[in-house]
Amino acid sequence: MKIHEYQAREILQDFDVPIPAGKVAETPSQAREVAEQLGGTVWAVKAQVHAGGRGKGGVKLARNLEQVEELAKTMIGMRLVAKQTGSDGALVSKVLIQQGVNIVSEYYVGFLIDRANQSPVLLASSEGGMEIEKVAADFPEKIVKEYIDSSVGLTKEQAKDVVVKLNMDEKVREKAEKVLLGLWKAFKEKDCSLLEINPLIVTKEGEVFPLDAKMTFDDNALYRHPELEVLIDPSQEDETELKAHEAGLPYIQLDGNIACLVNGAGLAMATMDTIKLFGGEPANFLDIGGGASVEKVTAAFEIMLSKPEVKVILVNIFGGIMKCDTIAEGIVEACKVVSLTVPLVVRMKGTHEDLGKQILKESGLPIITAETLGEAALKAVSLAKEQ
Results as ranks from 00 to 15, higher is better:
N220M: 00
G256A: 05
E281T: 14
Q253D: 14
E36A: 15
V104K: 15
Q84I: 10
S29T: 09
L211T: 03
L355A: 13
D233Y: 05
K156W: 09
P199D: 06
F15C: 06
K23S: 08
K83E: 13
G364R: 07
S363G: 15
E241G: 07
F187E: 00
S193L: 07
K276D: 13
I132D: 01
M269P: 05
L254S: 13
I368V: 06
M269E: 05
G280P: 09
L360D: 00
L267S: 09
L228Y: 05
M1R: 03
E196N: 05
E66Y: 06
D88N: 12
I143K: 07
G58T: 13
L166Y: 00
S105P: 03
F278H: 15
E375Y: 08
A31T: 06
K361R: 15
P366S: 13
K46I: 09
E69K: 07
K56E: 09
V294M: 06
I103R: 04
K23L: 07
R347L: 07
K214T: 02
N198V: 09
D233G: 04
K190Q: 09
Y6W: 09
R115H: 15
K160R: 15
G40T: 07
D238K: 10
A137Q: 14
G256K: 03
A328H: 03
F217T: 03
L194Q: 11
A159K: 00
D255A: 12
N220L: 07
D218F: 10
Q30T: 12
L277P: 12
E302G: 14
V337A: 14
G128L: 00
I197Y: 01
P226T: 08
L183F: 06
E302S: 14
L340R: 01
L166G: 02
T372M: 09
G128R: 01
L365G: 01
V34E: 01
A116C: 11
E371L: 11
L254G: 13
S339G: 14
L12G: 02
E371S: 15
V152I: 15
D273N: 14
I327L: 11
G266Y: 10
G350Y: 03
D219Y: 05
P140M: 05
K323L: 03
G374D: 15
L154I: 11
D161P: 02
E362C: 02
I313C: 03
A370H: 09
K23E: 08
A244W: 01
V202A: 02
D191H: 09
I3F: 03
M322T: 15
R347E: 06
L181G: 05
L373T: 04
E10I: 06
K145C: 08
V312T: 08
H225L: 07
L195Q: 06
K214L: 10
G291T: 14
D212Y: 03
K307P: 03
G319I: 04
I132N: 02
E177V: 13
L360Q: 02
Q48A: 05
Q358M: 12
E106P: 06
